[in-house]
């Protein structure tokens, strides 16, 4: 029998959900609002909500000062490139750990995660020197590789948990029917794990898109992505909150739109499997 819910309860839940939703997205809403204000209104105290002269001047200023398209293209190449490269490495790795576990599989997983525990700045100088001697400073190639390495532990972990939900017997059946390893992974495992792979892909594109340590430190002009674009508008001296907000809005808009359209995939991927 279906549980009875009163209108009051439903209203309460709705209000709570909206409240939490607005609370979480408040910083972004505020950034977008600020981007349409003048610098003086942006710092006004008490803050002005909607009742101000909306202006596009900040967007015009930001675009005259910086070449948005170049930063945007770099962000796209770096985030998507590193994620695809990461998946190519991580799918076989996760397959072997999920379906052919040894007594050390747990340790390997932990070890991979442990590489994320070291602060990135600790290896900045060696990485910088290495890239300098290879002539890779300020190139997208370098960033694709570094981003891939940064996110690889997360990709492997996520895929590992999705793959574990898939019964090994199905793969076994495929092998019985004569599928070799390549076919087993590409034609049997991957299609079954599409929701998991999709959400891994999306999450890692977002992570790589927002990464602001390596992308700032290893680039100057040619490979600088949107993080460098935002950084160039955040100033400790003088007030440029409105321009900074405009730059931030432009930088997060693409990923926000991508997230919006793929939210169904994301939720399905994150809740994939019966026990989660």
């Amino acid at each position: 029998m279906a549980r009875q819910t009163t209108t009051g309860q439903r209203a309460l839940v709705t209000v709570a959900a909206w409240g939490i939703g607005i609370l979480i997205s408040f910083p972004i809403i505020w950034t977008v609002l600020t981007s349409f204000k003048t610098e003086a209104t942006a710092i006004a105290s008490p803050p002005v909500w909607f009742n101000f002269d909306w202006t596009l001047q900040n967007y015009i200023d930001v675009n005259t000062r910086s070449d948005y398209a170049r930063y945007f293209m770099n962000s796209v190449v770096i985030s998507i490139g590193s994620t695809l490269l990461g998946l190519a490495v991580a799918i076989p790795a996760a397959w072997s750990m999920a379906f052919q576990p040894t007594k050390n599989t747990k340790n390997v997983l932990m070890w991979m995660l442990s590489t994320k525990m070291m602060p990135a700045v600790g290896v900045l100088v060696p990485v910088y020197l290495g890239l300098r001697s290879m002539g890779l400073l300020d190139t997208r190639t370098a960033l694709v590789i570094i981003m891939m390495l940064m996110n690889l532990p997360i990709i492997v972990w996520m895929l590992f948990t999705y793959f574990r939900e898939i019964p090994g017997e199905i793969l076994e059946a495929a092998r019985m029917d004569g599928a070799n390893l390549r076919n087993e992974i590409i034609h049997v495992l991957t299609p079954m794990a599409v929701p998991g792979i999709a959400s891994t892909l999306l999450l890692n594109v977002i992570l790589a898109w927002n990464e602001a340590f390596w992308t700032l430190n290893l680039t100057t002009t040619n490979a600088a992505p949107l993080t460098a674009f935002i950084a160039s508008f955040s100033s400790p001296q003088g007030l440029f909150y409105a321009k900074l907000s405009a730059a931030s809005t432009m930088a997060i808009a693409p990923i926000l739109i991508l997230g919006w359209f793929s939210q169904k995939q994301l939720v399905r991927g994150l809740t994939f499997g019966a026990v989660k």
Binding site: L216, T221, A231, S232, S235
Partner: peptide, 8 residues
Amino acid sequence: EWVTLEEN
């Protein structure tokens, strides 16, 4: 070519 960034 400019690299314009926040001080820190």
